Each structure stands twice: as C-alpha cells, then as structure tokens.
Simulated scan of single mutants.
Amino acid sequence: MIPRIRTIAALALILVTGCSAAEKPPVQMKPLVLKEQASTVAKSADGYVVNWAGVLVNSNPWHFGEHVVATVVGRDAKGAEVVHMDQPLDAVPPAGTLAFTGQAMASAKPVKVTIEYRSTQWRQAARVPSSLRKFPVSKVQTFKQKGGAYLITGEVGNPYVLPASSLVISALLRDKAGKLLAGASTFVDDVQAGKAPRFILTVEGLPPSAQVAKTDVVARTWGATGRPYEELALGGAVPMHTVKPTTAPFAKDRGRQVLPGESKP
C-alpha cells in the first residue's frame, strides 16, 4: 500500500505543478509611445537641413526597450519623399523616457516630416529600476545667437562610483505652453564621479517667429542596450552625504521619555 500511496501523491504533485505553470499569464509588454516630435527645415548651400527631435516613453516598469530604430520621412509639397532616414536609438530605460534628436540633408524642401519607430526588443532589467539614477545636469544656460540659432551650455555629473565612458546630452527647446520646438544632442566622454564636465551644443533651424521659453536638458548612457547603464548601477552610487559632522556629539540623550515600568538611568 505504501508504494501506491506515494505514487498517487507524486501524480497529484505533478498535476498541481503543471496547472500552476499553465495558469501563469505571459508578460504583456506595453509598446513604446512617441509622446512628442518636432522638426525644423533650414536652407543651406547644399540644399535643406532637416532637424528633428522626439521623446519616447516606456511605461513598462521592469524592462528596457532596446535596439529601437526611428524612421524619419520628409515629403515635399507634392507628397514626394525627399528624406528617408533610419536612426538607431539608445535604450529606453524602464518606466522612463528617451529624448533623441537627429539631422539629415534634403535636395528639395520638405513641408512635412514624420517620425515613427520599430524593432523594439524587450529585456528585463538586471538591476532594480530604482538603482538607475538620473545623471544630474546643472548650470544650464541658453543664448540666442544673431543668426537665430540657440547656444546651450551646462555641466553634467555622474552619480555612480564607476566612470561613465560616454554620455549623450540632449537639449529640447520649448515654448511657454511646453510645446516641443526643436532639439540637438552632443557627447561628453569619461565623466568621472565627483566631476562635472562642461558641455556645449547648438540648436539650429528654428523660424524667426519661434518663442523659446524653456530648455530641458537630459543626459543618458550611449548604446542600443541598457548594459552600460546597468554596469554603472552595479558598481554602486556615490554616497549622498560624505562630509563628516563638525558639531560636537551630545553629552547625553536629549529628553528621552521613560516608559511605565522602566527605571531611570
């Protein structure tokens, strides 16, 4: 009887385990959303310079959106395609955004520029998303140039112990209502912990009627995957408070209330 009882128990365990595995729902990933996009067209000696900026949103709290490709298409007044460019983008962090910019040349003037994206691959973050800290940007200044371009300067820091080999700095120009007008990007290499190297970039192509009221500047790791970001997080963050207190310690505890039944010291 004992072997029979053991056999029945084993079969029951297999059935329960199989049902639990079958009932586990697959992870449904929410697609990236192109929250904002803007473009500008400026005449040049070789044709037309087309600049664009966009913001992708990843609402998945535990997964990176990797190997994303943006497709930028510009059409002239007759609907003919005069610009077509596939732009590989950096990884979009979990529950985060990706600001990106780009530039292309066109022989004819496009009157409409659209941005779409494709080729998203999802990968669960190897680190807790809360460990993926933002790269602090400070001392941002925006200067309008005589030719209508905007010069943006500032400093970028590294909140991690390990040095960041390369960071992408993206500046987005907005009007009073917060609408995205244009943007541009640059790179800063070898950002050491405790240092704040300066960056400088130029946003061009805005029409004279553009009213820039605000500049948003963000920094991120460079690459189609989130590995560089995770490697920095794996190395640990720089402690927020590193200065030793200068005041003398208290001679005794301040006014601790004695609980009932407890003797005073």
Rank of each mutant, 00 (worst) to 15 (best):
R4V: 14
I5K: 13
A9W: 11
L11Y: 12
L11N: 10
T17P: 07
C19S: 15
A22R: 11
P26L: 13
P26F: 13
A38R: 09
S39G: 12
T40V: 15
T40E: 06
G47N: 08
Y48C: 09
N51T: 04
A53E: 09
V57Y: 04
V57C: 08
N60Y: 03
G65S: 11
G65Y: 00
E66S: 00
V68C: 02
V68E: 04
V73M: 07
R75P: 01
G79M: 08
A80I: 02
H84Q: 12
H84C: 02
D90I: 00
A91N: 03
V92S: 08
V92I: 12
P94L: 06
G96R: 03
T97S: 15
L98K: 05
T101N: 07
Q103N: 09
A104C: 04
M105D: 15
V111N: 03
V111I: 12
V113H: 03
V113A: 01
T114G: 07
E116W: 06
Y117E: 10
R118M: 07
Q121V: 03
W122E: 01
R123C: 00
A126D: 13
S130F: 10
L132K: 08
S138Y: 07
K139C: 09
K139M: 06
K139W: 02
K139Y: 11
T142D: 15
T142L: 15
F143A: 06
Q145D: 14
Y150A: 07
L151E: 08
L151I: 00
Y160E: 02
L162Q: 15
A164N: 00
L167Q: 00
I169G: 09
A171F: 10
A171T: 07
R174H: 13
G178W: 03
G178F: 05
L181C: 05
T186M: 10
A196H: 13
L201G: 01
L201Q: 02
T202F: 08
V203I: 15
P207H: 14
Q211G: 09
Q211Y: 00
Q211E: 15
V217S: 01
A219R: 04
A224Y: 06
T225V: 08
Y229M: 06
L234K: 12
L234D: 13
A237F: 03
P245K: 03
D253K: 02
V258M: 06
G261I: 01
G261N: 02
G261A: 06
E262G: 02
K264C: 07
